[in-house]
Design a protein around this nucleic acid. Sequence first.
DNA 1: GAAGATACCGACCAAACGGTATATTGTCAA
DNA 2: TTGACAATATACCGTTTGGTCGGTATCTTC
Lengths: 205, 205
Amino acid sequence: MMNMIQRKTRNPEQTRNDLLDAAYHEILESGFQAASLERILANTSVSKGALYHHFGTKRDLGLAVIEEVIGPQLEERWFTMLAQHDNPISGLYNLIAEKISHADESVIRYGCPLNNLIQEMSPLDESFRQGLQKIIERWVEVVAEALKEGQSAGQVRPDSNPEDIALYIVASIEGCVGLGKNAQSINAYQRCLRQLQVYIQSLAV
Amino acid sequence: MMNMIQRKTRNPEQTRNDLLDAAYHEILESGFQAASLERILANTSVSKGALYHHFGTKRDLGLAVIEEVIGPQLEERWFTMLAQHDNPISGLYNLIAEKISHADESVIRYGCPLNNLIQEMSPLDESFRQGLQKIIERWVEVVAEALKEGQSAGQVRPDSNPEDIALYIVASIEGCVGLGKNAQSINAYQRCLRQLQVYIQSLAV
DNA sequence: GAAGATACCGACCAAACGGTATATTGTCAA
DNA sequence: TTGACAATATACCGTTTGGTCGGTATCTTC
């Protein structure tokens, strides 16, 4: 076979990561169903053969993006930061504050990758739903755990259910991001999150 | 041409409504991009020719669903009901209570048609975004207006911005529906909305 | 009742899609 | 050095997609 324009050296790990990264962005921009493998390949200079060597189907690629890109991303940016504060109220408050001040264009334009996939895929594919749900549950659990410790330390009002509140906080965040995205407005995004801050402060004892 | 199996009598309005209704359900189940015209046609016994007589493109059909189905649906179920209460706190509270008790399977499975389309389409098509944003703005406006009147009547705390709170409430609702959908859990859905009720009550003077 | 407009029909089309088959090349253990 | 296998390349395939087109039936108007 002629004209084999191949990569100079083999690097399967790099190839796999390139694919995951390109797939992540393609999915963020177009959604999973409308994500085009051809476009992903064009953005990575990876051949179709290589793609199907690393991932059995488009679906497998999507599931890998959830598990290996979106999950870890949230874990880093959110969960470890929350653990650094010894007061959950100020911890959550500061986390939201950071979201408010770092309102970059990508969030306003494309919203939250996790929420996007939830709305699109969770009714259509049980494996997707479970992969996404695992991340959500972890998120809620981390917030709930912080609130519980805050209750023990007398920082959080004891008359409230940490699990329920954590669930609601996560829901509100996704809601704020979603509305900011549709308004295409940093202002709406910030105003919405600001109210969440007010709510969070009301949890203090 | 032989074998023209046509509808017995013409009824352009009915045909159009049938198409809008079927498209609404198809979009709710699959999203807009993955919505199949063939499937819509199969569910309506309308021919492709008839479809393209009433709607210029698939995009036009989608925009019509937003404007003529989703918009009015929310207007009926929400906006008129809120106007019936003379206290916005109890009005909003009851509206959420109704959502909690009427947690039908469709909401848990498919979520909110408005939010689904926002997350999928608003970054991809400016006309979609504007159509959806019009509905969101109306929603926020109705809630904000009710809160303002409540402030005047001394029912709502005066130290808060009705527009911001209204935005946040709408965002929270969408967030709760979205999480309930991903958890596939009526329980999570209800617990989440229950916290929103608590928040709403905290707005009372 | 003829003419013109409106509504509807179904075969067809090009493009894009995810996926497969087969060939080739790099890597590394034996 | 060689044999085996992992990694990569590309041509190709069947299906589905949104959309078009020439034609027909029905309704309205004069």
